[in-house]
Design a protein around this nucleic acid. Sequence first.
DNA 1: TAATGTTCTGTAAGCGCTTACAATCTTATA
DNA 2: TATAAGATTGTAAGCGCTTACAGAACATTA
Lengths: 335, 335
Amino acid sequence: MNIYDVSRRAGVSIATVSRVLNGNPNVSEKTRSKVLAVMDELEYTPNVFARGLGLGTMKTIGIMCSDSSDPYLAGAIYHLERQLRSHGYDSLLCCTGPSLENKRTYFELLLSKRVDAVILAGSKFVELIDKNNQYLMEAAKELPIMLVNGYLNSPGIYSTVCNDYEAMYSAAVRLINSGRRNILYLYTSHSYSGLNKVEGYKNALTDHNIPVRREYIHQCAKDLNESRKLIKKMSGLGLEFDAIMTSDDSLAVGAVKFAREMNIKIPEQLAVIGYNNSILSYCTNPEISSIDTKVEQLCTITVDTLMRVFDGGNVPAKTVIAAEFIQKHTTNFSI
Amino acid sequence: MNIYDVSRRAGVSIATVSRVLNGNPNVSEKTRSKVLAVMDELEYTPNVFARGLGLGTMKTIGIMCSDSSDPYLAGAIYHLERQLRSHGYDSLLCCTGPSLENKRTYFELLLSKRVDAVILAGSKFVELIDKNNQYLMEAAKELPIMLVNGYLNSPGIYSTVCNDYEAMYSAAVRLINSGRRNILYLYTSHSYSGLNKVEGYKNALTDHNIPVRREYIHQCAKDLNESRKLIKKMSGLGLEFDAIMTSDDSLAVGAVKFAREMNIKIPEQLAVIGYNNSILSYCTNPEISSIDTKVEQLCTITVDTLMRVFDGGNVPAKTVIAAEFIQKHTTNFSI
DNA sequence: TAATGTTCTGTAAGCGCTTACAATCTTATA
DNA sequence: TATAAGATTGTAAGCGCTTACAGAACATTA
C-alpha cells in the first residue's frame, strides 16, 4: 500500500498524491477530494521513512535527561512531550542514567537518529558534555539545542531557566528577616542552576551581614535518607542551625525527617525550604514550603521557542521565568 | 556524506560498504578494516531514514502511557527506555494525558511512525482503546503489543503483570489477623490490575467471614488531597474503620494526612497500606507500609520478552512477577 | 479567434540505503 | 596445471516518497 496504489486508483499521478499529502495548494479542489477519498478508502498511511528520506526530517525531537523518574524531570518530560506533540513533533527519549558518564555517546546517538533538535532537560546534565562545552557548541551548528534549566551562551543554543538566584535570595532573606541566623544549605550538584541557587543564598546572608560559613553548605545525594543522615551527622558534630534551605525537595524531606527524629519543632525551632514544589513537598507533615519552578511553563516556553527557531524567527537565546515561593508549613514568616 | 563517498574513498562498491555497516560476514577482514577506517576518517553516519526505508524498520519502540509524571509510570518509563536502549532500540514516548480520550488516535499515530512494537504502560490505560479490545487485537496482528500491568488474552499481545490479587489478598489477611475488622478500601480505577486488587481485598474478607460492605469501597482520584477529603467525608458520615488499603501510594498519603488532621494514631488506631512502594510512601511520617510492585523487574521482563518475540522465540503470553510487602510504620503486624 | 497568462498535472530524477544475483578472485583438489 | 567449490565483491533494482521542470488544460483579454 503506497503512493502508487493511491495514484492508480484515483487516476492521477503520484506527484498529485504527494501534493495532497503535503497540503500543496496547487491542486484543484476536485482532484484533492478524490485523492483524499481514495486514501481513506484504501486506509493509506504514508511511509514515514520514505518521507523522512525525501524531506530530511521526520519531525522528531530528542529529549535527553539523566534520570527521568526524578519527580521534577518526570514532570518536565511529560510536559515537553505533550507540547511537542501538539505541534506535530514526536519525542525520542534518551536517559543517560545516574552515572552521566556516556552523555556524549548518547547525544551522538540522538544526532545519528537525525532528530530535528535536542532538548537537554535538567541542568545537572547540561554542563557536562565536555569540559568547555566545545562539543555542544559545535553540535549547535547542525541543529537547535534547547536547554531546560541550563544556560550556555552560544549560537544555536537556547535556554529556558528559572530565576533561581532571585528565588533563593528572596527566600533566604525571608528567613533572615524572620530571625533565622544559622541557615544550613544543602545542594545536590553545582550545575548552572545549582550555582545560581547557592549564590542567592550566599548573597542574601552577606547582604544582611551574616557570615557565609563553609560548614553550613553541603553537597548531598538527591535522596531523602542521605539528606537526613547528613543533617543528623552535622547536628551531631555540634553544628547549630535554625533553618535549612535545599536545592531540591527530596533533600528537604530528609530535613523534615531529621527534625521528626530529633523531636525538633518545625517551624518554631527549625524552618525548612524545599525547591521545585514537587509532590514530595506535599507528602510530609508538615508540608514543606517550597519554591515552585513552574515546570509546565518552562516546558511550554521551551517548545514555543523551538518552534520559532524552526520558523526562522528571531528568538531570544535565554528566557527567564519567575519562580514562586509557596509557603506551606515548614516556614512561618508573613509573605 | 553518504555511502557513495565512503565507497569511493575506500575503493569498494556501496554494497560492500553496506555489508560492513550491517556486520555481514561475507567481507574479507582486509576490506572491512579499510572501510571502517574510511568511515571513521570521514565521520560517516548512515542515514537512518534511508536505512529505515530499505529495512522497513528503524528499531524504535513506541511507549504509550497516560501521565508519565506519575511516580510509578515515570519509573516504568525510565526503566523501559534504558532496557530498550541496551538492546539497541529507541523509545518514542507518547503521553495521552489525563483525559485518555483520544488513546486510539495516539495509538494510530504511533503505528503510522512504523514503530516495531508498542508498549502500553499502566493498566488503567490498556483496557480502554475500544469497547471489547477488538481494535487492539487487530493491531496486534501487525506488530507486537506489550502490556505492562495489563492483560489481554490474544495472539501478539504479551503481558507482564504483578500478582496484584495475591499481594492485596495477603496484605488484607495480615490486617485481619492483626485484629482489624473495618478495612476501608480506596482505588483509583477499575483497570485490570485495579480489579485484581479489589478482588484480593474482598476475598480476604470473605475468607475470614467478614462481610464485604459497599460503603467501605470507594473510588478516588489519584491525588493525596482528594483521598484525604474523601476519607474525612466518610468518617464524618459516621463510617468506622481501623485500616485503610489503597490501590496507590498517593491515596495512602492522603490517609496518613487524614489521620494527622484528626489526631488518629497510626498504626494503633488506624493501619494504612499503600501500593507501589513509591518514593511517596517514604516521605510521610510515619512512612507508609506498601506493596512493592518491582517496576524495574517488570520492565526488564517486558523488554526481554519483546526481544524474544522479535527473535521469533516461543514466548509466554503472560508473565507474572511477585510483589513484595514492605512493612514500614503504618502497620504493626509481625511478618 | 488567437494570444497570453494562470492553474493544474505529469514525468522523471533524486534521497541513501539494502540485497538478490551475477561476476570475479582464491583456494583446494585431482 | 586445470578445475570446481567457496569466498569475496560489484551491479543494479528496488524501498516510497518529494519536487524541479515541463507540459496540458483552462480562463482571460484584445
